[in-house]
Computed example of a mutant assay.
Amino acid sequence: MIDSPFVRSVILNREDVPAFSKYPFHLPSIKTLNQLTFHPKVTYLIGENGMGKSTLLEAIAVSLGFNPEGGSFNFNFSTFDTHSELTNYIKLIKGIDKPRDGFFLRAESFYNVASNIEELDHGGGGPKIINSFGGQSLHEQSHGEAFFSTFIHRFGGNGIYILDEPEAALSPLRQMSMVTRIHDLVNQHSQLIIATHSPIIMSYPHSFIYELSEDGIQEKKLEETNHFQIMKRFLNDPKRMLHHLLES
């Protein structure tokens, strides 16, 4: 089991921020950020759209040395340069150990990662990169299967894994399988930081859950999160919920 995190916390250098009225510093989670401590195993960033989850996660990933569009530490392609300048204003407090593996997986640009793998494999003469992803072209699989193949085959343990909305392509069953995979990786001395909307994925018990809202960042238990409560109310009485949603 992991004893010491690879990344302990992130600090916003507030005195250097040019203006909290401009993007990305006006986002609620960034505007109120001082220091955020990471769980040595799993940390979740959750909240409604527009609260700054992906922006903060991206800044953390880039500060760790990942490509803004995703991939391992060795990926260095650029399809579009749209990442924020937040990474220039944060400081990561790292642990003693250095990760031997790592991957930044973001749903919105995973297609670009898959394309870059094919380009590198087509032009290279050495071992195929795709072999470490299960051997089958990611473009020849469904989005969900390509995601899950990456979780299973490419994530090797002893690493730091940054995941941005991995549930976007996964069925509920696959999301439950992912929780099992998270546990396997934790037992292989790994640390994960995950932005998600899925109550299933955020259910892993050895974790911190930070809910980002207009009031800033608050640590929550799973059952206290808006995601869990809304889903629970819907599943307990879908007819009543639909009645309120659809009544004119």
Rank of each mutant, 00 (worst) to 15 (best):
E48S: 14
N88W: 04
S78C: 12
I96H: 13
L64A: 10
L57K: 04
V62Q: 02
V62G: 04
Y89C: 11
F80Y: 15
G50W: 11
H83V: 03
L86E: 00
K91L: 10
S72V: 01
S84C: 04
N74Q: 13
S63N: 08
K53F: 07
T82K: 15
A107F: 15
A59S: 12
E48N: 13
T79R: 13
L86V: 02
I60W: 00
L45W: 00
T55C: 06
N67T: 07
N67P: 04
S109D: 14
E69Q: 14
N88G: 02
E85A: 13
R106E: 14
F103Y: 14
D81F: 06
N49H: 15
E69D: 07
I90N: 04
G52V: 03
G47R: 02
R100Y: 12
S78N: 09
F77N: 10
F80H: 11
F104C: 06
G71E: 01
M51H: 03
G70H: 05
E85K: 11
G47E: 02
L56A: 00
F75G: 00
G95Q: 06
P99H: 09
F103Q: 01
K91T: 14
F73K: 05
L86M: 08
E85D: 14
F104L: 12
A61K: 00
D101R: 11
P99F: 03
F75L: 09
G65I: 06
T82V: 08
K53A: 08
R106P: 00
I96M: 10
L105P: 01
G70E: 06
F103W: 07
L56P: 00
K53Q: 05
L105A: 09
N49A: 13
L64G: 06
F75T: 07
E58G: 09
H83E: 11
S109E: 15
I46H: 00
F77H: 13
R100C: 09
K53W: 03
L57A: 05
I60F: 02
I93S: 11
S109I: 07
E48G: 13
V62A: 06
E85Y: 07
M51W: 01
F103N: 02
G65T: 07
K91Y: 10
F75W: 10
K53N: 05
I96E: 15
F77M: 08
P68H: 10
T87A: 14
D97H: 12
N67Q: 10
T55D: 04
E69N: 04
F75V: 05
G70Y: 07
F80G: 03
L86I: 01
G95P: 11
L57Q: 05
G102K: 08
S54L: 09
G52F: 00
G95K: 06
F73Y: 12
F66W: 03
G102D: 06
V62L: 08
